[in-house]
């Protein structure tokens, strides 16, 4: 077993303990305990590179094709936020997310609506490099997704930001970077 695999296993175990302690499988905004939000913050701070707004790189970040991004880089698995927007469950790669926050009044500066998904929003997924905020209804958990469990879309004429479908969870893998490119 490689060092990376060992680290991932430890990391997963730690997270499972955390979930069990919090007794959470699916949570909604109204029942989300602070321990969980703190835990999400901790995960995001540890697991992602932070860019304070004033230090964010000025150049545009043109995303590569997601298939290239996830498969050709040799990523057999990657972390995702498993969330719900409207009636749709989505997986959003964690490396595109900087923070998860509860929605309140001061969060209206740059709202990123996914065209196919509508619904009341309770949480904000703040994208890396301050590219935008994704408004979601609920955040269920952060989980490791295996590349082989994704049915990757080869042709993406319609809604290219949905880069694939998770075969077991039966939900879309959403790449917010592609939506940003589309609307910018």
């Amino acid at each position: 077993m490689s060092t990376l695999e060992t680290e991932l296993e430890i990391s997963l175990d730690e997270r499972l303990v955390c979930y069990e302690e919090a007794n959470l499988n699916t949570v909604s905004e109204t029942t989300l305990p602070s321990v969980f939000t703190d835990y999400l913050d901790l995960l995001l701070e540890k697991g992602t590179e932070l860019y304070p707004y004033d230090l964010a790189p000025a150049e545009s970040i043109l995303p590569e094709l997601s298939r290239v991004q996830y498969i050709d880089k040799g990523l057999s698995q990657f972390e995702c936020v498993y969330c719900r927007i409207g009636r749709h469950d989505l997986l959003i790669p964690l490396d595109s997310i900087q923070r998860i926050e509860k929605l309140d009044a001061h969060h209206e500066r740059y709202r990123l609506n996914i065209p196919e998904c509508e619904g009341e929003s309770h949480f904000i997924l703040q994208m890396m490099r301050n590219q935008g905020n994704i408004y979601v209804h609920s955040v269920a958990k952060i989980l490791w997704v295996q590349s082989e469990d994704i049915l990757w879309r080869d042709r993406q004429a319609r809604a290219p930001w949905f880069v694939g479908t998770h075969k077991l969870l039966l939900c879309r893998l959403f790449d917010p970077n592609l939506l940003v490119v589309e609307i910018s």
């Binding site: 009636r87 749709h88 989505l90 809604a159 949905f162 039966l170 879309r172």
Partner: peptide, 8 residues
């Protein structure tokens, strides 16, 4: 049946 955003 899981709904699929972006589907026809």
């Amino acid at each position: 049946v899981a709904s699929v955003p972006g589907a026809p």
